[in-house]
Design a protein around this nucleic acid. Structure first.
Length: 484
RNA sequence: GCGGCUGUAGCUCAGUUGGUUAGAGCACCAGGUUGUGAUCCUGGGGGUCACGGGUUCGAAUCCCGCCAGCCGCCCCA
């Protein structure tokens, strides 16, 4: 054995900040959530992929600003002196734990783009890491569900064509793919028991906002600041917000009018596609949002969706549609948008793409807020962890001796009989009442009471009734299988 | 990186102006009501009062430090 750890109190090492220990109930909750993610994704025609949980740190330098790099968990193998030197010199390790999936996805798609279906619909669910200070809704290790649609459902030669006809076709195709993503996200929320009164998808468009800013004659250099300001509006006092707007030359009132037009239009099914409102001297091009709203309507999820031009998303790489899942009192549950230039940045063919990510931390808080997080018996049932059978004896010596062999035989199964999930008590008591209580607590489907060396009684916990006849132990498995 | 709040049993928490051996409920384990789930009764294990100093005859309690957690700011891929 190696020497004891050099730390003073090796017994008191705590889990790292911002991580979670998952005891059975929490592990079951996590399984339930991720199973919902998978089931919904598959149902919507997405295929599961995954990548490494750590990547070359350069991958995250390609498109990210300094903000991201500062909050990477860094890693190095320690096997090479060069690596160690690199860390000392540059402060940057050769690897980083993945803080998001999009770069990996872009890398994977770029590497095999030619042979992949068009469009290519991928999802993944797994752990991610960010070295941030933990707070409500934000941890350093979390699970994230990513759904992306890469490419369009029209011939590839049209994807980047410039003629007016192709461009119109592309715009419609993009709206279709955007809506598919949003619909998949909505399906998950619905499958978790949430309703439009609990959460909504706020969608906006970078294009529309950019048009608006241009029309206001705001220099491009300030666009990012304004997007950021819009994003933070809810955190600012109205007068501070107004002051900031003035400082940046942003016509807040005009924006609010525009926002109002959007919302009204949504209620009326966007009848004004392609129209501009002279009334407010608005000359922005709403077309992309109108197309998306039309698709949302076709997919039957209008009730969940609200146009909201203030959705900015921090990411610089979003190009068109952006959306967030927003619930009162929590930070964004999910977010995503269109990133038409990113695949190219990672060395692939220029490919329009759209996707979103949903984290488990805020989602769990939201479900708790709404009383929708299953627990106890219900949870065990949802994740299929109820025992099929709980075996006990009546306390007689000969019967007691058959408990463990019977459990083992039922678990093992046989030629045509699948092994069952079987438990027995580890308690010392021979009190049948207490043992049946234990069987009930564990949610067992059947309780088997061994009566003597050869036979048992079977109690169906659903009907709470005992089978009329005693069952020979040799027939038990077949009888149980027939009853389930 | 900055600020606020909180640390007593596995969990939720009592603990008086500082005063004997630090408590309850739940949970867990065991026994009983002598063989069929909801109860009831009895008993048990389990705490360096986060940790380290200080004040005091005496500290869970007051002071300082430190660690951890939570909440917020920054940021949010």
């Amino acid at each position: 054995m190696t020497a004891p750890s050099r730390t003073d109190q090796p017994h008191k090492i705590q889990p790292p900040r911002g991580t979670r220990d998952l005891y059975p109930a929490e592990a079951a909750r996590r399984r339930w959530l991720t199973e919902r993610w998978r089931e919904v994704s598959v149902r919507h025609g997405f295929e599961e992929v995954d990548g490494p949980t750590f990547e070359a740190s350069d991958l995250y330098a390609v498109k990210s600003g300094d903000g991201i790099l500062g909050e990477l968990f860094q890693a190095f193998s320690g096997k090479s002196p060069d690596e160690v030197e690199q860390v000392k010199d540059t402060g940057r390790a050769p690897y980083a734990l993945r803080p998001e999936f999009t770069p990996t996805l872009a890398r994977m798609y770029a590497a095999k783009a030619a042979g992949l279906p068009k469009p290519c619909k991928w999802f993944m669910a797994g752990p991610f890491f960010r070295a941030e200070r933990p707070q409500r809704g934000r941890l350093r290790e979390f699970l994230q569900w990513n759904c992306d649609v890469l490419g369009l459902d029209i011939p590839t030669e049209k994807w980047n064509a410039e003629d007016a006809e192709s461009r119109a076709e592309v715009a419609e195709a993009k709206a279709r793919m955007d809506a598919e993503c949003i619909a998949c996200c909505v399906a998950d929320l619905e499958s978790l028991g949430l309703a439009p009164s609990d959460v909504s998808i706020h969608f906006g468009s970078r294009d529309v906002v950019t048009n608006m800013l241009n029309e206001m004659e705001i220099p491009e250099s300030r666009h990012t600041q304004i997007l950021n300001l819009l994003d933070r509006q809810s955190k600012l006092a109205p007068k501070d917000f107004a002051a900031e707007c003035d400082r940046l030359g942003f016509h807040m009132h005009r924006f609010q009018v525009l926002q109002g037009i959007c919302i009204d239009a949504m209620k009326q099914g966007f009848p004004w596609i392609g129209l501009n409102s002279d009334e407010h001297a608005v000359t922005f091009d709403f077309k992309s949002m109108a197309l998306l709203a039309t698709e949302i309507e076709k997919l039957g999820i209008t009730a969940w969706c609200k146009p909201d031009l203030s959705i900015a998303r921090g990411l610089a790489y979003y190009t068109g549609t952006v959306f967030e899942v927003i619930a009162d009192g929590e930070r964004a549950v999910a977010g995503g948008g269109r990133y038409d230039n990113l695949i190219e940045l990672f060395g692939g063919p220029k490919t329009p793409a759209v996707g979103f990510a949903m984290g488990d931390v805020v989602l769990s808080l939201l479900l708790q807020d709404k009383g929708l997080m299953p627990s106890g018996d219900e949870l065990m049932g949802l994740v299929g962890q109820h025992p099929d059978v709980f075996v006990l004896s009546n306390g007689d010596e000969a019967a007691e001796a058959r408990v463990r062999p019977t459990v083992a035989a039922l678990r093992r199964g046989g030629e045509s009989l699948a092994g069952l999930h079987v438990r027995h008590s580890y308690k010392a008591t021979k009190n049948v009442g207490k043992l049946l209580k234990e069987a009930a607590q564990q949610g067992a489907r059947f309780a088997v009471i061994i009566e003597d060396a050869e036979s048992c009684s079977v109690k169906d916990t659903r009907t709470n009734e005992q089978w009329p006849d005693k069952v020979p132990l040799t027939d038990l498995h077949a009888r149980l299988a027939g009853a389930m």
